[in-house]
Every structure is written in structure tokens, then in C-alpha cells.
Design a protein around this nucleic acid. Structure first.
Length: 202
DNA sequence: ACTACGATCTACT
DNA sequence: GTAGATCGTAGTG
């Protein structure tokens, strides 16, 4: 198996197009306990002129600028890689890097629908099989055993791969403001699959 | 060195 | 619905 899981021009598209286009895409995670497969059902876009983006800072006068740090370096690299970071003392977050190299943009994966390996995900979470396994960004990384070791990982390669599927029709995509941030709270850059039981919040 | 806070989760009222 | 856990990161002195 040695093919590109996405078209060559996929990551040249605007991040605000990629975020909804990733709905329905598959994540395949190889672990010692087996292969875990899940479908992306909720995403958020973080952009280069976005105060909520990790690569963006604001001067006292409000002017935005880019700042590369130890944590966010992967965001400034080539698209198609995983940006994984640690927060709140407990949780890892998984993003797909987008945008051209040198620009800090990414799509946060906020919820997954398990397709295979749900029993192993339940073991990783210490919970029975239910939407609680993967209906949040911190929950899904624990279910798939994703941590900082995968920061910068090329998502065309095992042990964590992304595969596109046919795009969802527009009427099945809901667009809302993002969750859990304190800046740019109004920007409607969160996307989820309408009616999907594994979405974090309606 | 010191401080503040976070793209969250869980438990509890 | 609300509060506490928990600690790495980044900014400041």
C-alpha cells in the first residue's frame, strides 16, 4: 500500500474549505492492540489572521503578527502533517496542518465516529462503547492513543493516516462558532455533520 | 524564577 | 450548570 490518500492539490485549498471537506474522512491508527479506524465528524479551522490561532499574537495596539514557538512549530511547516499539542494539564489535541508552508493554519479534529476497533478505544478510555469515547478533541486522542510523539507526523504514513472520502453534501454540514476559545469567539469556523450522534455539542 | 492561562474533561449539585 | 483538576507553554522580570 503506497499511494497518496488525498489529491495533490487538496492542501492548496483555503483552510476554510478544507475544514468542512475533512468531514467524513477516515483516520486510521495502528497500535500494538490493533488497527483503529474512525470517521471525522467535527472540525474547526484556525487561520493565519486569526487571534485564536496558536501561531498568531496580538500587539498591545491590537495588530496581529506570527510567532513560531516550541509548541506551535509544526503549524508553520508543510501541510498534511499532524499538529499535536498538550493542554489543560491532561489533554492532547489533534490538528491537520493546512495552508502554505510558513503560514500557521490548521484544522482541529473535534469528534470522531468509530468504524473499527471500538473495543480497543473503549479500553483506552476506560469506558463502555458510547459516543463519550470520541465526542471531544481530548477524548478522541486518548481513544486513539495519540500524543506528542505524533506531533509533526506525515499523515500519509502509518501509524496514523488520513484518507479522504466523497465529500458530504452541503445540506448535511452545519457551521457554527468555535468552542472553548476566548478570542474571535464569533467567527463561524466550526463544522460538523448534521444529525451525527458522535458530535461534541449541538 | 515566577506567573497566568489554556482549541478540556469529569464529577458533583 | 458549575467548579476543580492538572501541568506545559509562553511571557515577563
Amino acid at each position: 500500500m503506497d499511494y497518496n490518500p488525498w489529491p495533490d492539490d487538496f492542501f492548496t485549498r483555503p483552510t476554510l474549505d478544507i475544514a468542512p471537506a475533512l468531514l467524513g474522512a477516515l483516520l486510521v491508527r495502528e497500535t500494538p492492540a490493533g488497527r483503529l479506524t474512525a470517521r471525522i465528524v467535527e472540525t474547526e479551522a484556525y487561520l493565519q489572521h486569526d487571534p485564536a490561532c496558536h501561531g498568531v499574537r496580538a500587539r498591545p495596539d491590537g495588530e496581529l503578527y506570527h510567532r513560531q514557538t516550541g509548541r506551535n512549530t509544526t503549524m508553520f511547516g508543510p501541510p498534511g502533517r499532524a499538529y499535536v499539542y498538550f493542554t489543560y494539564g491532561n489533554h492532547f489535541m489533534l490538528n491537520v496542518v493546512t495552508g502554505e508552508e510558513g503560514m500557521p493554519e490548521a484544522v482541529l479534529i473535534r469528534a470522531l465516529e468509530p468504524l473499527a476497533g471500538a473495543a480497543t478505544m473503549a479500553l483506552n478510555r476506560g469506558l463502555p462503547i458510547s459516543p463519550a469515547l470520541t465526542n471531544g478533541p481530548g477524548k478522541l486522542t486518548r481513544a486513539l492513543a495519540i500524543d506528542r510523539a505524533l506531533d509533526g507526523h506525515d499523515l500519509t504514513q502509518p501509524p496514523l493516516q488520513l484518507f479522504l472520502t466523497t465529500p458530504l453534501p452541503e445540506h448535511r454540514i452545519v457551521r457554527t462558532p468555535r468552542i472553548g476559545i476566548s478570542k474571535a469567539v464569533e467567527c463561524p469556523w466550526r463544522f460538523y455533520e448534521h444529525g451525527n450522534a458522535w458530535v461534541s455539542r449541538k
